[in-house]
Computed example of a mutant assay.
Amino acid sequence: MSIQWKGIMPAVTTKFTEKDELDFKMFETNIKAQLDAGVHGIVLGGTLGEASTLIDEEKRALTKTTVDIVKGQVPVFINVAEQSTKGAILAAQKAEEDGASGLMMLPPMRYKACDTETVQYFKTVANNTSLPIMVYNNPVDYKIEVTLDMFEEMLACKNIEAVKESTRDTTNIIRIKNRFGDRLKIMTGVDTLALESLLLGADGWVAGLVCAFPAETVAIYELQKAGRIQEALDIYRWFMPLLELDISPKLVQNIKLAEVATGIGTENVRAPRLPLAGEERKHVLQTIEQALKTRPTLPDYKNLNVSV
């Protein structure tokens, strides 16, 4: 599948049963809700997907199951977050075997690689898979920044095609576009900067709260694309208290509570994570409840006259 790096791509949560096994029934319910809302891709096994707690067999099962559910409607991406280049190559090759359409790749885990090591890491993996790659650039959480000079070297690999831009500096979108044009597609990765990023030229949004509110998320993208900025902004303003649940160390617990509220998820997380409790839980529930009370009526965002 040729990847169209655009639109809304949910970084989906991984569903677990109360016995801490993969909950494929609820997972399918959520994926179908995403597809019904009109998302443009599915991203598996990211931070929100509790990647660090998943064993290899579970990641492969998630990939195969999602490919089967999606049936070619949208591309399916699996996150690669490994400690070694060897491990990353193996993960990429397994993803390809399992039917993934592409990869989202983080820099090396744990070891803080220098610029040269980071560039070589991405290039070596890219040269050992035919899958398209989206580089996840998140120096705030992962302490390694992929600079524009580094991308200049990495783009010698034709299958490094996109960046998940999570530096929190929206002007970086302008810099990337000025330097690389359409050679490096930009998917914004920070929920609370999403609309701004799209208006500055990002091609799409790898989203978090979309897991619970898929229609609202896709509507924002489609409205701004059609030039109906005020309507997109009105939904975005309503959405912001929820979007702020994504920029928290407990984003997984927060978003899973939101999924419960909208009927497309459960609260089950994998230890060492625990469900929210006390005042923390109360605050998140109040945020979700207020949003549900004031939930906007959406226009027919799937059938807009797109002006750009």
Results as ranks from 00 to 15, higher is better:
224 Q>K: 06
159 N>E: 06
93 Q>R: 15
189 G>E: 02
184 L>W: 04
293 K>L: 15
144 I>S: 02
93 Q>A: 03
221 Y>H: 12
86 K>W: 08
42 I>A: 05
278 G>W: 13
108 P>N: 07
85 T>L: 04
254 N>A: 11
41 G>Q: 02
188 T>Y: 03
51 A>F: 14
4 Q>P: 00
198 L>T: 07
299 P>A: 09
250 K>G: 00
22 L>K: 06
31 I>R: 11
304 L>D: 04
140 V>G: 05
73 Q>T: 14
140 V>W: 00
258 A>I: 06
183 R>I: 01
194 A>V: 00
220 I>C: 06
162 A>M: 09
244 E>D: 09
182 D>L: 01
281 R>I: 00
266 T>H: 09
130 S>I: 08
279 E>V: 08
217 T>G: 06
80 V>Y: 04
185 K>V: 01
264 I>M: 08
8 I>A: 02
76 V>S: 04
252 V>L: 07
182 D>F: 00
31 I>K: 06
293 K>Q: 15
67 V>I: 10
97 E>Y: 08
172 N>L: 14
226 A>Q: 10
273 R>L: 15
298 L>C: 07
104 M>L: 15
307 S>M: 13
37 A>K: 10
37 A>M: 09
188 T>G: 09
186 I>C: 05
24 F>K: 05
112 K>D: 06
260 V>H: 03
269 V>Y: 10
26 M>N: 14
51 A>D: 11
262 T>V: 11
239 F>S: 08
167 T>M: 08
33 A>Q: 14
13 T>Q: 08
61 A>Y: 09
35 L>K: 07
165 E>N: 09
110 R>N: 13
2 S>T: 13
61 A>F: 07
135 V>R: 05
303 N>V: 03
61 A>D: 12
204 G>I: 02
254 N>H: 15
48 L>G: 15
146 V>Q: 01
244 E>H: 14
159 N>A: 10
298 L>V: 04
43 V>C: 10
198 L>D: 07
194 A>Q: 05
196 E>A: 13
306 V>G: 01
66 T>G: 08
28 E>G: 04
45 G>D: 10
128 N>D: 06
301 Y>K: 04
112 K>H: 05
199 L>H: 01
78 I>C: 11
106 L>C: 09
99 G>Q: 10
260 V>E: 13
305 N>M: 11
274 L>R: 11
137 N>C: 09
217 T>D: 10
297 T>P: 00
59 K>N: 14
255 I>Y: 05
39 V>I: 15
133 I>N: 05
72 G>H: 08
277 A>T: 14
128 N>K: 06
230 Q>V: 08
64 K>P: 00
121 Y>C: 07
85 T>D: 09
290 Q>M: 12
206 V>I: 15
208 G>M: 03
207 A>W: 02
116 T>V: 07
222 E>F: 03
246 D>L: 12
232 A>W: 13
11 A>N: 09
149 D>N: 14
274 L>N: 04
65 T>M: 12
18 E>H: 12
143 K>V: 14
208 G>S: 13
53 T>L: 12
295 R>T: 02
217 T>A: 14
40 H>S: 14
245 L>Q: 02
266 T>Y: 03
215 A>H: 14
87 G>D: 06
233 L>H: 12
152 E>C: 01
212 A>E: 05
72 G>L: 02
277 A>N: 06
238 W>F: 10
185 K>W: 00
263 G>H: 05
38 G>V: 12
24 F>D: 05
105 M>Y: 11
74 V>G: 07
26 M>P: 00
156 A>F: 01
6 K>A: 12
